Simulated scan of single mutants.
Amino acid sequence: MSAFPSEDTDLTHLLVVSDVGRSRAWYEGVLGATVEREYEGSCVLRLLGSWLLLVTGGGPGEDKPTVSFAPPGDPDRVSAELIFRVPDCRGAYETLRARGASFLTPPVDRGYEVRAFFRDPDGHLFEISEISGRSTR
């Protein structure tokens, strides 16, 4: 029997988007992702050593008979986000803004952390975060 996870196991984060082409362009242009491959209306990206799979919505299938995939219905109700731990939050903020990222607010200094939030074209939430000052761990 094989161990899980093993050294050759990868983790892929799947995002349901309304337009794969538009999202692919945003992830490449704003976040610097690279396209690994495209198939059946989906796009596989590499980003910071991780896999990101962009797919359009769809109904149940034989392997997931009660599950439907849909992009976020309300971007202000979040059940997941991707966080980028960065050495310089304000610098990353300026770089990403220049590339077209739309932030909710400028970076906020919470004393132990500086962070800022932004969204992709479908409303998926992202955070850039810099640990600073005193630690809470």
Rank of each mutant, 00 (worst) to 15 (best):
residue 1 M to F: 10
residue 1 M to C: 08
residue 2 S to T: 12
residue 2 S to P: 15
residue 3 A to Y: 11
residue 11 L to I: 15
residue 12 T to R: 14
residue 15 L to A: 09
residue 16 V to K: 07
residue 16 V to C: 13
residue 17 V to F: 02
residue 17 V to A: 04
residue 17 V to H: 12
residue 17 V to D: 02
residue 18 S to L: 08
residue 19 D to V: 05
residue 20 V to N: 08
residue 20 V to M: 06
residue 23 S to M: 05
residue 24 R to P: 01
residue 25 A to L: 08
residue 28 E to R: 15
residue 30 V to H: 02
residue 32 G to N: 04
residue 34 T to G: 13
residue 37 R to C: 00
residue 38 E to K: 10
residue 40 E to Y: 09
residue 41 G to I: 01
residue 41 G to W: 05
residue 42 S to I: 02
residue 42 S to R: 14
residue 42 S to Y: 06
residue 43 C to R: 00
residue 43 C to H: 03
residue 44 V to P: 00
residue 44 V to Q: 09
residue 46 R to V: 04
residue 47 L to P: 00
residue 50 S to D: 06
residue 53 L to Y: 03
residue 53 L to I: 07
residue 54 L to Q: 03
residue 54 L to F: 02
residue 55 V to W: 09
residue 60 P to F: 04
residue 61 G to W: 09
residue 62 E to M: 06
residue 62 E to N: 11
residue 62 E to K: 14
residue 64 K to R: 09
residue 64 K to S: 09
residue 64 K to N: 13
residue 69 F to P: 00
residue 69 F to S: 04
residue 70 A to D: 12
residue 70 A to I: 04
residue 71 P to C: 01
residue 71 P to S: 03
residue 72 P to L: 05
residue 72 P to A: 00
residue 73 G to C: 03
residue 77 R to G: 02
residue 78 V to R: 06
residue 79 S to I: 12
residue 79 S to L: 08
residue 85 R to D: 13
residue 86 V to Q: 00
residue 87 P to C: 01
residue 89 C to I: 12
residue 91 G to I: 01
residue 91 G to H: 05
residue 91 G to F: 00
residue 92 A to T: 15
residue 92 A to I: 09
residue 94 E to F: 02
residue 94 E to S: 08
residue 95 T to H: 11
residue 95 T to E: 14
residue 96 L to T: 03
residue 97 R to Q: 10
residue 98 A to T: 03
residue 99 R to S: 15
residue 99 R to N: 15
residue 100 G to F: 14
residue 100 G to K: 12
residue 103 F to K: 07
residue 105 T to P: 01
residue 107 P to K: 01
residue 108 V to R: 13
residue 109 D to M: 05
residue 110 R to W: 15
residue 118 F to R: 02
residue 119 R to M: 00
residue 119 R to H: 12
residue 120 D to Q: 13
residue 120 D to N: 12
residue 120 D to E: 06
residue 121 P to D: 02
residue 122 D to I: 11
residue 122 D to N: 13
residue 124 H to W: 08
residue 124 H to R: 10
residue 125 L to I: 02
residue 128 I to W: 01
residue 129 S to Q: 12
residue 130 E to S: 02
residue 131 I to R: 14
residue 133 G to H: 07
residue 135 S to N: 11
residue 135 S to C: 06
